[in-house]
Design a binder for these strands. Structure first.
Lengths: 156, 156
DNA sequence: ATGATTTCTTAATCTAGGTTAACCTTTATC
DNA sequence: GATAAAGGTTAACCTAGATTAAGAAATCAT
């Protein structure tokens, strides 16, 4: 459990590395993401101050996600430990619920609906990250997001 | 904690009902799913014997998923209880990991890739459910799945 | 401050998967 | 075992979002 200061744009965990930690954000903004075989990034999660971010693989397994900073950040590294997680099971159950909703959304909602849901759910993050990042979280291209936002303005 | 016998096709939990239980499958096959505003079903999860299935909302909240049986089944109803879940945190952490992978797949893989991954990961379920159900789990239409499988045969 | 890199937008074109509909096969139901 | 219902396939056509490319605006680095 060590506090580190991390400059914007620094990768603090890479796919394939042995994963033993999660990261609690004291200040700043992190993200986790994967890179597909075409080199395209897919953001799995954002984590602003107060949140904890990490890969869901068991401690000692190889990481499946990259984690980096989108702003200069202060981060506390916390060793993964299922015993400790038992003390605090609520956030994990909440996490499962959020992931369930995300999957249902990805399967049943249009890009516009997913965008509107994102903006409503995470207004703070919407203000802090680029369109490109939001598009990547939604599972669409920045071009598609630009088009969607345009259509929205004209139709409302 | 009560054991019930459920005939194929019976809905044992509906969206909007107060949710207090999860279901442990002794025999048979259940699924959880949502229905979108166009009336289309989206399967969130299958649960064959030995698995536990339930909505991830907290006990007392309104259910966001339907749960029904795809085969005649014997099911044990278990009251949700975060204290009890603490005893057995491993399956929940595993669950988070599976959901993380599913989200990454939905965002970055084609329908064919998702199908092949499904068949490889759940060969037993592949044998037991209709194409329609598999398509619904993958987030595509049965027509699209039929097309994909055809293409696969001709290209290999 | 200035050039360079990154971000955002627009537009043309392309494609995976959706929609609709017809048809055939398998499975339930009486 | 006849009839109905559900499941699966095929084909024609459609559409949301991807791709490519190019220009404008913002941000970064020296």
């Amino acid at each position: 459990m060590k506090q580190i200061e991390v400059k914007k744009g620094t990768v603090i965990q890479s796919v394939g590395e042995v994963d033993t930690k999660v990261y609690h954000v004291k200040s700043g903004l992190l993200r986790s993401y994967s890179i597909d075989e075409k080199g395209k990034e897919h953001i799995f999660m954002f984590a602003p101050e107060g949140w904890t971010i990490g890969d869901s693989v068991s401690s000692g397994e190889k990481a499946e996600l990259f984690i980096d900073t989108l702003e200069n950040s202060i981060v506390i590294e916390v060793e993964k430990n299922p015993e400790k997680e038992k003390q605090n099971i609520k956030p994990i159950l909440k996490r499962v619920s959020v992931l369930q909703k995300r999957i249902i959304m990805l399967m049943s909602s249009s890009a516009l609906e997913r965008y509107e849901h994102f903006v409503k759910t995470y207004p703070d993050i919407t203000q802090r990250v680029s369109q490109k990042m939001i598009a990547s979280y939604l599972g669409i291209t920045p071009e598609a997001l630009s088009k969607i936002k345009n259509k929205k303005i004209n139709n409302s």
